[in-house]
Design a protein around this nucleic acid. Sequence first.
DNA 1: CCCTCTCGGTTTGTAATTAAACTGGTTGCT
DNA 2: AGCAACCAGTTTAATTACAAACCGAGAGGG
Lengths: 162, 162
Amino acid sequence: MNDPELITEHGKSVQATRYAPYFLSVINNRLSWGASQVYLKLFDIGLNEWRILSALRNEPGVQALRVGEMVGMNKSVVSRSTRRLEDMGHVVSRLDRARRLLWLTPSGADLHDKIIAIALRREAALLDGFSQDELNTMFTLLERMRANLGKVDAVDHDLTGR
Amino acid sequence: MNDPELITEHGKSVQATRYAPYFLSVINNRLSWGASQVYLKLFDIGLNEWRILSALRNEPGVQALRVGEMVGMNKSVVSRSTRRLEDMGHVVSRLDRARRLLWLTPSGADLHDKIIAIALRREAALLDGFSQDELNTMFTLLERMRANLGKVDAVDHDLTGR
DNA sequence: CCCTCTCGGTTTGTAATTAAACTGGTTGCT
DNA sequence: AGCAACCAGTTTAATTACAAACCGAGAGGG
């Protein structure tokens, strides 16, 4: 019945339950997709716009490029999303030489404060049942993974010849 | 100089370094983007195609829907990616009633074995320096987060009214 | 035997993400 | 002053991701 040309035997493979990238992607994808949907539905802005609000709340008057660094966004996204927030009246910008400096408006600050409450509630649900010790451990381990990303890149460069 | 209408004071905000979703997104995004680039460059297939190869290696002859469950992919992605793999000759399918059953071809199995070596190398780089104990702890904590995703959804439903 | 409901799968639409090409203004050097 | 190098930001293109609408084949009930 089965074509002998087909692979039908169980070979060595990745066990998803012990493969870190799989775990990370499942958790992250559902988290960020869910966040987007909630923010869009309640406030008509997406996850990227929210990140910008957050950055500007921390450092009012920064330039666009710095916003990207702060929240780990590509500058192209910063560009589009700030424009959108500006159109909606949540952000204003001023040109300083070649730089574009950004501030929240009162409505932007208000929006930020509403969304952060939701973001923290969602995070609390994600970490429900974690003791303080476990939280510390987890952040430490995540931080070490993040620090190792450069080594992953090195593997990639090795494989693709830069 | 600063318009008084603008928010310029530092208010309560999210500290990215202790905000789990941010960490997860940074790590995951770089990981999966990097993987895609490597697989595309070396083998002309993307991350999604790779995931399907992996699922079919584990369970030859499964139906498309089940593949999605196994590797956490949306069925629409499974649909597109399997078609692509079939066009490339790495996968064959057979209709069984309404189901579409999938198998690797020898070339697909070969491709799988090449890529898994890379995937494991990349993961090893990510987890470089982790002791066996730390690995166990981390997978446990990740699994608990994954299990909590339902609670996050509950928060979302509560907020958006289903 | 036909109608409807269900189920697997495909298509479509929107958001997020990154790199790379492009633009325009600044700065620095001669 | 003029040209080149650089830098911030914008635009474009490609990939991943999810939900929802859609479609077609089966199954079940009347």
